[in-house]
Nucleic acid binder design. Structure first.
Length: 621
RNA sequence: GCGCCCGUAGCUCAAUUGGAUAGAGCAUCUGCCUUCGGAGCAGAGGGUUGCAGGUUCAAGUCCUGCCGGGCGCGCCA
């Protein structure tokens, strides 16, 4: 067992361990100063087969391969003259046609400084790999690639680790230092959430779950825009609906107040009729109530927010915190942010307004913080809000926005920077918008006509699980076409059902095993013995299961759950091939126990994976 | 006009951040499965990665210019 400066066994880049090794060797040759941490256990030795117990997990499979590679390359490098500097190297999953579980292109990148052909470098590094039980085979191939094949013993042992850790499998110590604030949805509270918000909600919630699973402390937050023009317009819109329902309900001054608003600024959505009815029911004519737009605004706001909370709950999403914009004013944070910017010389007064000189920080124009009439802009509170979020001590802020807000990003970044925060610690994740398809034809979505498709309509139609899975199916960066017909089909062409079915089938095998008296305890499966040799279908499943931590790692790195949905679909495919070729209950006792363990591993990871997406995994269907 | 995102098989999308013969699913076609759940499996066809240059051992990926699509460009939020 060894400990790395970063706290992670083999962190990020291979260069880390490579340099270690390299450094130590240099020291032996009287070379560079060396930092040596802990005791290095020769990679590939039997010790390596022991996995750490406890909450955290040190290495993913890929880390293990990186370690083997770096160790060998490090020993190779010290023998080179002129000296070779080991840069970044990458261990990747190779294309299907190449033999091996992992591959590296390192020799290709080292060839130049080593002044040797890449193939030769590859062969020399292969020769340096220490024999052991982890890697079965290392080969040089192609123009200078290295191909690694994991040993059956390692794969089988990793299954034991999975069955021991269960729901904690893939938790990694390195992530425990991260404190993330994830802000998402934050839709203006002027009506129900629509489908576009659903994508943001699914994205944010799944990412939060994935980060937490990996061991990060994550807070999810919804920022409520409860002040400003649009909220007054909401109040006026409700008054307009109220007036239509009962012309005697509003006072004359109230009528004047809402009719003073421009008609095109009013929200036309039908749901506001219900809001109006609700208010009239709770405050009958003649009873005591506050007067004016603000009364209707606040009442409407409360009702709309309740609705949004309900929409999200039905979608399996609940934020840890709801942060109202008004709080920033109540606590004086907006003025405080202004003062700080002023002190830095980042403000100017011009045309009677107060401006933030965002062009100093890369924005393409300066931005107004306070209008001529002294009222602050939305941007002003957002500046204060981001400042406040940083002040809470998070290591990272993530904002998730629809791509239609992308033009807003540079000014927020500028503000964050001007207020003295590291802009690298703020990530603004933009997702492309969603188009709905029904019966092969697009469903139109326009917020302006008030005919937008509500998230709840989609959830009601296809179910929460299908909706969650579909929203997580694609990279945030690509347009998402949501096929409503496909999503609700109870057939194998629907990926949600394909994956869920495998989970149910796994449970069915266990039910059958118990019925036949082949299994007394369906949970433990502690000590199965690894088979002499693995069937290809068994092997494919083992490597797929073992790749789960790497997949989550990648989801966290790329800020997208779509690697996970893809992995689950591949896992389901692997399982069906296994199921087809490898009878479980009909096998001899040792093999049966091993295969039951495999099935147990599959259902465990499907359950974990789906729950990270907010999707249920039924035991029968 | 300017800025950001995108363009990959008939359709919907991947491609591990510059790597090997660009892969899946659906659809189509051909087979298989009365066993632990047939909601399954195996196989086939299908591509000049929008176009044209450039960078290098290597480009769907990077740089330039076009073409096409989406979204922004307010003292709205």
């Amino acid at each position: 067992m060894f400990v790395c400066p970063s706290g992670r066994a083999v962190s990020g880049s291979v260069a880390h361990i490579g340099l270690w090794r390299f450094g130590r060797a240099c020291d032996e040759f009287g070379g560079a100063r060396v930092l040596w941490f802990g005791t290095f256990v020769g990679i590939g030795s039997d010790r390596e087969m022991e996995h750490v117990s406890g909450v955290g997990q040190e290495e993913t499979v890929r880390d293990v391969v990186r370690g083997v590679l770096a160790e060998a390359a490090g020993r190779w490098a010290v023998e080179q003259n002129p000296p070779v500097s080991l840069g970044e190297a990458l261990v990747e999953v190779p294309p299907a046609n190449v033999p091996g579980d992992f591959a590296s292109n390192w020799p290709l990148t080292l060839a130049k400084s080593a002044r040797k052909p890449p193939r030769q470098v590859a062969q020399e590094i292969v020769a340096k790999v220490l024999p052991g039980n982890v890697i079965e085979k290392v080969e040089s191939a192609g123009p200078g690639f290295l191909n690694f094949t994991m040993s059956p013993q390692w794969l089988v042992n990793e299954l034991r680790v999975l069955l021991k850790r269960r729901a904690d499998y893939a938790r990694q110590d390195s992530f425990s230092k991260e404190r993330i604030l994830l802000e998402f949805v934050s839709a203006n509270p002027n009506g129900p959430l629509h489908v576009g918000h659903g994508r943001g909600a699914a994205l944010g919630d799944s990412l939060a779950r994935i980060f937490r699973h990996l061991g990060c402390a994550v807070t999810t937050e919804y920022y409520i825009n409860n002040v400003g023009n649009q909220m007054e317009n909401l109040g006026a819109s409700v008054m307009w609906r109220t007036d239509a329902l009962d012309p005697t309900y509003l006072s004359e001054s109230e009528k004047a107040a809402y009719t003073a608003k421009k008609v095109e600024d009013l929200y036309k959505g039908e749901y506001l009729v219900d809001v109006a009815r609700d208010i009239m029911r709770r405050f009958p004519k003649g009873t005591d109530r506050a007067e004016g737009i603000l009364f209707f605004r606040d009442e409407a706001l409360a009702l709309v927010l309740d609705g949004i909370r309900g929409d999200l709950k039905a979608f399996g999403v609940s934020h840890n915190q709801w942060y109202p914009e008004s709080r920033l004013f109540d606590e004086g944070r907006v003025d405080a942010a202004f003062a700080q910017l002023r002190a830095r010389g980042d403000l100017k007064d011009e045309d009677g307004a107060l401006w933030f000189l965002s062009t100093k920080y890369g924005d393409d124009k300066d931005r107004v913080l306070k209008r001529q009439d002294e009222r602050p802009t939305y941007f002003a509170s957002d500046v204060a809000y981001h400042h406040e979020k940083f002040g809470r001590g998070y290591t990272r802020l993530i904002d998730i926005w629809g791509t239609d807000h992308h033009g807003y990003a540079p000014r927020v970044r500028a503000a964050v920077q001007a207020l003295g925060h590291d802009p690298e610690r703020l990530t603004i994740l933009l997702y492309q918008l969603v188009s709905l398809v029904r019966a092969g034809a697009p469903v139109t979505m326009s917020t302006r006509t008030g005919e937008f498709v509500k998230l709840t309509d989609v959830v009601d139609e296809v179910g929460k699980d299908a909706a969650r899975f579909f929203f997580a199916l694609r990279s945030p960066n690509s347009h998402l076409e949501f096929d409503l017909d496909l999503a609700k089909r109870q057939a194998s062409d629907n990926p949600v059902f394909y994956v869920k079915y495998v989970h149910a089938r796994c449970h069915s095998i266990f039910r059958e095993a118990q019925k036949r008296g082949l299994l007394t305890d369906d949970v433990a499966l502690p000590d199965f013995s690894g088979p002499e040799s693995l069937d290809p279908a068994e092997r494919a499943l083992l490597i797929r299961l073992a790749s789960f931590p790497d997949v989550l790692d990648q989801c966290a790195r790329d800020l997208t759950p779509h690697h996970l949905t893809e992995h689950l679909m591949k896992l389901a495919g692997d399982f069906h091939r296994f199921y087809e070729n490898c009878p479980v209950l009909g096998a001899d006792p040792d093999r049966r126990l091993f295969r039951l363990a495999l099935v147990d591993g599959v259902r465990t990871l499907i359950h974990s994976g789906l729950s990270l997406l907010g999707v249920e995994a039924p035991e029968s269907m």
